[in-house]
């Protein structure tokens, strides 16, 4: 990877399904608009939103990326008809691009269960278990 990328750089092994990322991004955009983000930037807020806890540095440790990583999920927030930034970002990444749906194939299920403390009863739909915790974490 060359230069800085203006986007949320996420560890794809911690993502059950892209829906989860949409939920995190939607929440970040919402909180940004009403001035109630917990972190300073929209892209860090997306990463924070993925985490089941309210600990920011924890969220970055789990869901952020490090130099040794072999895969990255990049999330950009942009107006629907403005894709220039996306092209720029793609030019900066040296690697093979895969369909976003394929992140589900990479997920480390055991890690997810441990981190979100899901119960065996929730095994039938891990995505719902994760999204529920993300949605409700501010009031737990």
């Amino acid at each position: 990877m060359e230069g800085k990328i203006d986007g949320a750089l996420i560890n794809p092994f911690m993502i059950v399904h892209p829906f989860e990322v949409l939920v995190a991004a939607n929440k970040a955009v919402h909180l940004h608009r009403i001035g109630k983000m917990k972190t300073r930037r929209m892209y860090s807020e997306i990463i924070y939103n993925l985490s089941p806890t309210n600990n920011i540095s924890d969220a970055f440790k789990r869901f952020g990326t490090s130099d040794s990583d072999t895969a990255v999920l990049i999330v950009l927030v942009h107006p629907t008809d403005e894709t220039r930034h996306m092209t720029e970002v793609m030019a900066k990444v040296d690697g093979q691009q895969i369909p976003v749906e394929d992140v589900s194939k990479m997920v480390d299920t055991a890690q997810i269960k441990k981190l979100y403390r899901t119960t065996p009863q929730e095994d039938s739909c891990l995505l719902d278990a994760v999204v529920c915790r993300m949605a409700v974490k501010d009031v737990i």
Binding site: I34, Q121, E122, C125, V131, C132, A135, V139
Partner: peptide, 26 residues
């Protein structure tokens, strides 16, 4: 708040209840 908390609690216990996707407190 009570509604979303209870939904999560039930789901954890294996009681069927809708998943919560997003809450807008404003």
């Amino acid at each position: 708040v009570q509604e979303v908390r209870a939904l999560l609690r039930c789901r954890k216990a294996g009681i069927s209840a809708p998943a919560v996707y997003f809450v807008d407190y404003t």
